[in-house]
Structures are given as structure tokens and as C-alpha cells.
């Protein structure tokens, strides 16, 4: 009884600000509104969504973006964590350096990178020119723009994921490692047969976080490209934003939201399950 009462305030807020909007979005996805016309109910928004080539493009872009950001940033984070886990002064300094982008808001980072990516006069092209590389239109060429967006995301997130891995590494019991040493296992063997399996839960967790980030972060897209050129950097969330706020098509935006969240939930579940199967839990 008391517990229920204590939970009541947060329950009210959760219902009002989380569950009710979710219900509204689901209802909204079935409402087909025309200009000054009556509202029809049905699957029309979903039919239009799947017929929209822009949605297909956004889906594809987001898949590329997810693969392009998750694999390198999680891989690099693991590498950095293993390489910099010792408590020497040098690795402490390097750890700080790698984690530094974490402190910069994504919007500010994106605004900075707009200047770094300036074709011809920007920092990147300036250094590349010294190496004899011709200048590139990093954000203005449809075949490079998504890659540029991916690059700053990896730069931004790697340090964050590294922190999780450092915490995970601290939890690897030293006696298991020592036992392996006594048995004559070399460093790569110890890493692949002891550290990596014991890091399983951390890898699973970080991958899901990275997946969520790949779907929920679009600040840099808004600042740097607005989804362009020619839809090359339109991610799912940006597509939803465009439909809702630029085209005032709330039905289509709601349908896209429902589809994206459903896919995200399914993906998270699958990746957690798959990773869990390979995890050796200590008991």
C-alpha cells in the first residue's frame, strides 16, 4: 500500500508523458487526414509509407549508418580499453584524450566539423593537400556525405563506449587470468579465451546502446546536411521530423515512428539474445 502510494507520483508522470504519447502515436498512425477534409481510419498511412522511396532511402541510409558507426566505434573502444587499461601516467592521459569528445555536445561538434570539412579551405582538405590529395566536397558530395557523418559519429562515441569496456575489464577476475598464465597461455590466447568471453555482457550492452544511438541521434544531420544532398544523409528520425514538421503529415510521421520503433525493439531483442547465448555467466 505504502509502496504503491510512493510510486504514484512517478507513475502519473510516466503515464502522462511516456505511455499516453506512445498510445497517441499509434492511434495517429491510423488517422488519414486531408486538407480540410474528414479523417479516415485505416492502413493508408502505412501503405503510403512503404510506397515512399524516401522512406526506403532513409531506411537504407540508417542501416549503412548503423553498420558504419557501431562496428568501428565498438571495435575501437574495445581496442583502446584493452590498450589503455594499465594505470600508467601515459595511458591515463591517452584515456582522457580518447574520452574527450564525450564532453562536447553533438551539436557543437557538428558545427565545428562543418568548418573542418569545408572543401578546399577547410582543415581536413588543407592537410590532405600537403599530402598531395585533391580537395573533396565532404558534405556536398552524395557519395561522401554519409561517410563524413559516420566519421564524426565514430569520433564522438568511441570514448564513451571505451568507458564501459574499462569498467567491464575491471570486473574480469585476476585469478582466472593468472591461472591461464600458469597454464602457459600467451597474451592473444588470454584475450580471446578469457577476457573477451567475460566481457560478453558489456559487449552486448554497448552494442545495444550503440544501436539506440544510431537511431536516436540526428543532431549532426540537422546541423551539417539537413538530410541532403539529394537525401544522401536522411536517417529515419530525420525523415520522421521532415514529415511531421516540414510537410505537416502527422499520419505518415506517426506510421514511420511506429515502424522504426518496432524494428529497433526487434533488433535490440535479437542482438541481446544472440550475445547472451555466447556469454559465460559466473555463478
Amino acid at each position: 500500500m505504502t509502496a504503491g502510494l510512493l510510486l504514484l507520483p512517478s507513475a502519473v508522470f510516466l503515464l502522462a508523458f511516456t505511455y499516453w504519447p506512445v498510445v497517441q502515436v499509434v492511434i495517429g498512425s491510423f488517422a488519414e487526414r486531408g486538407f480540410r477534409g474528414a479523417t479516415h481510419w485505416g492502413f493508408g498511412n502505412y501503405a503510403r509509407l512503404f510506397a515512399d522511396p524516401h522512406f526506403g532511402q532513409a531506411l537504407w541510409n540508417n542501416a549503412l549508418y548503423a553498420a558504419g558507426t557501431i562496428v568501428p566505434s565498438v571495435g575501437l573502444a574495445l581496442l583502446f580499453a584493452v590498450g589503455l587499461r594499465d594505470n600508467t601516467r601515459l595511458s591515463a592521459a591517452l584515456r582522457t584524450l580518447v574520452a574527450l569528445p564525450l564532453l562536447i555536445p553533438l551539436v557543437a561538434a557538428a558545427a565545428l566539423f562543418v568548418f573542418i570539412f569545408l572543401p578546399g579551405g577547410g582543415l581536413l582538405d588543407w592537410y590532405l593537400a600537403k599530402l598531395g590529395v585533391a580537395s573533396h566536397n565532404w558534405l556536398g558530395d552524395p557519395s561522401l556525405a554519409l561517410g563524413s557523418i559516420i566519421a564524426i559519429t565514430v569520433w564522438k562515441n568511441t570514448g564513451y563506449y571505451m568507458l564501459f569496456f574499462l569498467a567491464g575489464l575491471a570486473g574480469v577476475p585476476q585469478d582466472v587470468v593468472d591461472a591461464a598464465k600458469i597454464d602457459g597461455a600467451n597474451a592473444p590466447q588470454r584475450f580471446f579465451h578469457i577476457t573477451l568471453p567475460l566481457l560478453g555482457p558489456t559487449i552486448g550492452f554497448v552494442t545495444v546502446i550503440a544501436l539506440l544511438n544510431a537511431i536516436t541521434q540526428v543532431d549532426h544531420v540537422i546541423v551539417m546536411t539537413q538530410g541532403g544532398p539529394s537525401d544522401a544523409t536522411t536517417l529515419l528520425l530525420y525523415y520522421i521530423y521532415q514529415q511531421a514538421h516540414q510537410n505537416y503529415d502527422l499520419g505518415l510521421a506517426s506510421a514511420a515512428t511506429v515502424v522504426s520503433v518496432a524494428m529497433l525493439a526487434a533488433l535490440s531483442l535479437v542482438s541481446l539474445r544472440t550475445l547472451e547465448r555466447g556469454i559465460h555467466h559466473e555463478s
Binding site: V114, F115, L118, P119, G120, G121, N137, L139, G140, D141, P142, G228, P229
Partner: peptide
């Protein structure tokens, strides 16, 4: 004219630098 999309900052920077 350069290929692709050039934003206003890149255009003015190029103009100021004589590019």
C-alpha cells in the same frame, strides 16, 4: 563550377580566398 553541393560558408570562404 565545383561538382556537388557547396554551402554558403564554403562559397564565401572561397570568394574571400580567391578560389
Amino acid at each position: 563550377m565545383p561538382e556537388g553541393v557547396t554551402d554558403a560558408n564554403a562559397v564565401t570562404t572561397a570568394f574571400f580566398q580567391g578560389r
